[in-house]
């Protein structure tokens, strides 16, 4: 962000106001961007509009153009599995986003203390992020299976009291999914935070040392507030990931036991394919779209204000 806005300022010739400088765009660049714009307009926006439109019709197996008002939404919210899915994704989202942020931040701080073999640790913690959610899900499915996984191993080693059967319990399964998600995403948060930590002035540390402020307080009250953009970026990436969660659930629990780990994205895919219910699927997708927009737009806006304030523009 800082780099981008910096480049923008230098690009505008001195003496001219920033606003006009921003509006004047080279023709060649515009021409080069045209295919990308067309794709965005036709593919992304086009299908989005189509989805919203279908959700307002009587469509079931085949798309229909017969207007049906909000009746698909009525059906959607009358379906127990949809309300279950929303509850689940909220629980998952809170645990997953906060968990990944806290674990990622702690990892970043640990590495920032100039540990030995720093790059080895960094690679190791980032590696899970390179896996697909399907692999993560399958791996944790085996690890958390009480008959063959961690529980069975611990019990075979003589720890008869050891119990770790979250995936088979309706009340705990969603936390099992969150745990696998945290394992996967904490590395990404770590990298984002580490970049922020490295941007902090070394003089600041010297000053706190002279003042005799304990390290944890320095991190909590001085360093963390300076990591604003990194935190916002990590939070937004994780939140969007949480709302979209699909493959992790499919591989780990497939929504079970019962409906205890069903999530909206899986509901939409099932409605679209297995249940051949276009209307319900598009209604669910539309609800999800507006939810994501409601979360991301304020964050993007806040981050923009924050960055501009940092650069002294506001």
């Amino acid at each position: 962000m800082v780099d981008q806005s910096g480049a923008r300022t230098t690009a505008s010739p001195p003496g001219r106001s920033k606003v006009t400088g921003r509006l004047r765009l080279p023709v060649a660049a515009m021409a080069a961007l045209t295919p990308a714009w067309l794709i965005i307009l036709l593919v992304y926006l086009g299908t989005t509009v189509w989805t919203v439109q279908i959700s307002l019709t009587k469509s079931r197996m085949l798309p229909s153009s017969e207007f049906a008002g909000l009746s698909q939404y009525q059906r959607l919210f009358g379906t127990a599995r949809w309300s279950n899915s929303i509850e689940n994704v909220l629980t998952f989202g809170v645990v997953y986003v906060l968990g990944a942020m806290v674990v990622g931040l702690l990892l970043a701080i640990a590495i920032d203390r100039r540990v030995r073999f720093e790059s080895a640790w960094r690679t190791m913690f980032l590696y899970p992020y390179a896996l697909s959610f399907i692999v993560t899900g399958l791996m944790w499915q085996w690890l958390m299976n009480p008959e063959i996984g961690i529980q069975a191993t611990a019990r075979a080693a003589g720890l008869g009291w050891f119990t770790f059967d979250w995936t088979t319990r309706s009340d705990m399964a969603i936390y099992a999914v969150a745990l696998a998600g945290i394992w996967q995403s904490a590395g990404l948060v770590m990298v984002l935070m580490l970049a922020g930590l490295r941007g902090i002035d070394a003089d600041l540390w010297r000053a706190t040392r002279i003042e005799g402020i304990p390290m944890w307080r320095t991190y909590l009250t001085i360093v963390l507030p300076q990591l604003g953009p990194s935190v916002a970026t990590a939070f937004m990436l994780l939140t969007m990931g949480a709302v979209r969660t699909f493959d992790l659930v499919v591989a780990l629990t497939n929504g079970g036991p019962g409906q205890s780990t069903e999530v909206p994205a899986k509901f939409i895919m099932d409605s679209l394919f297995a249940r051949q219910d276009l209307g319900l699927a598009t209604a669910g997708a539309t609800v999800m779209l507006f939810t994501v927009m409601a979360v991301t737009i304020p964050i993007l806006y806040a981050r923009d204000i924050w960055t501009r304030r940092q650069n002294g523009r506001l």
Partner: peptide, 19 residues
Amino acid sequence: LSPAINGGFKDAVGAFFAD
């Protein structure tokens, strides 16, 4: 019955057995 109704059955039955 339609795939949507059958899907609803499965949801109900699965939830009942698990809980």
